[in-house]
Computed example of a mutant assay.
Amino acid sequence: MTAGRILDRMPRPLDPLRSFKVKTGLLVVAALFFASLMFWVTARWPFRYALILALLVSLAVTQILAHGMTSPLRSMTAAARAMATGDYSRRVRSTSRDEIGELARAFNQMAEDLEAADRYRRELIGNVSHELRTPISALQALLENVVDGVEAPGPARMRVALDQTERLGRLVAELLDLSRVEGGAVQLEREIFPVREFLDDVVRQSEDPRRVTVDVQPPHLRADADTARLHQVVANLVDNAFRHGPARTEVVVRARPDAGGVVLEVEDDGPGIAPGERSRVFERFTRGGSTDGGTGLGLAIARWAVDLHDGHIEVLDTVEGCCIRVSLPAA
């Protein structure tokens, strides 16, 4: 254990006090008291020896009491220097209840936020690099074969190239959406709209509208929300249902009123999501164990769009298939 850590573990008798000014006053009073006490004890000594001893005792008392007052500042300085080198794991002992203790707790919170942001940045770079590498490698291999004359540039080959290009475009679009949401650049533009017409429009733009059933009760149900953001949510959920379900999966989109708001459910007859993964599927780049080429961002974007409405999104317990519910409170 280093000397700094040993000193940091020393008792801090003034920590319970809530004011730094009161601590400073007590420090002065304690120093004068012990200096006077030593003068009284050594009254028969020569004056210079008594004075030296009184000063030494006063200095020792001052060091003991002042250590606990200034230790958080020294710890913050060391932690700040560590942060400059990329180490965000250092924390400050914040047992004091005065202004410096509050500063130490704020510093620890800042360190945690910076550590989380740095971890997210590293994970994002790694995940994006991984997601980009797959379609780019496939395109490169395809184009090399065509250029070398190994394969003819027929419709089937071009279809593969188009699929990979669409995957790249989808990843870039979702990353831009994610950046806007996390940066607070997305503002809600609420409006009252008929839910049935809204859902029919979303389904018409889906992969296969014939496999989607829209059920709105009552038929004239209306909602108050940002249609662009809500379109993004429902479209991602329907696309996710097609992606994870069997070849001819049937998708049902339901809407019901709920305490002045609206509840939307998207259900499919696919394999479903394991209970242990249901809380993680809304995280970035999490695909619930799927390896079908999804970016793992669709449900994360859906969650943020729902959060903008102060709503809630969850995976429901179902006997078969998967059902995701979106609850939007009244405006």
Rank of each mutant, 00 (worst) to 15 (best):
N127P: 00
F107V: 01
E99A: 11
G126A: 04
T165E: 07
R159K: 12
R81E: 08
P194A: 14
R210P: 06
S137I: 05
S75H: 06
D200M: 00
Q187T: 10
G183Q: 03
S129Y: 10
E123M: 03
D177Y: 02
F198M: 08
E123R: 02
R180D: 04
Y88L: 05
L139F: 11
V128W: 12
P194G: 12
I136W: 06
V202Y: 13
Y120F: 12
G86S: 03
V195Q: 02
E123G: 00
L73P: 00
Q109S: 09
G183V: 02
R190E: 09
S137P: 10
E174S: 08
E112F: 11
M83I: 04
V214R: 08
R90V: 09
G184V: 09
D215I: 07
T95F: 14
A156F: 14
H220T: 04
H220G: 00
L114K: 09
A106T: 12
L175E: 09
F107W: 14
D87P: 02
E131D: 11
E151S: 08
E174F: 06
A173P: 05
R170W: 05
A156P: 02
L139A: 05
L73I: 15
A173M: 06
E123Y: 07
T85M: 10
L132A: 06
G101P: 06
S89C: 11
R170K: 08
S96H: 04
L139V: 13
S179G: 02
V147S: 08
P135L: 05
F198N: 08
L143G: 01
R196K: 15
S96C: 03
M76W: 09
E144V: 07
V160L: 15
Y120E: 15
P219Y: 13
A173N: 14
E131H: 12
M110R: 12
R121S: 11
G183D: 01
I100H: 07
V128L: 13
M110K: 11
V181L: 15
R157M: 13
E189P: 01
L124A: 02
A104P: 00
D163K: 01
R119P: 02
E191A: 07
R97V: 01
A79N: 13
V195N: 02
S94A: 15
F198D: 10
Y88E: 05
E166G: 00
G101M: 07
D148L: 14
A152R: 10
G184N: 04
G183K: 11
A104Q: 01
L73Y: 00
G183I: 04
P218M: 03
E112L: 09
R90A: 13
G169C: 03
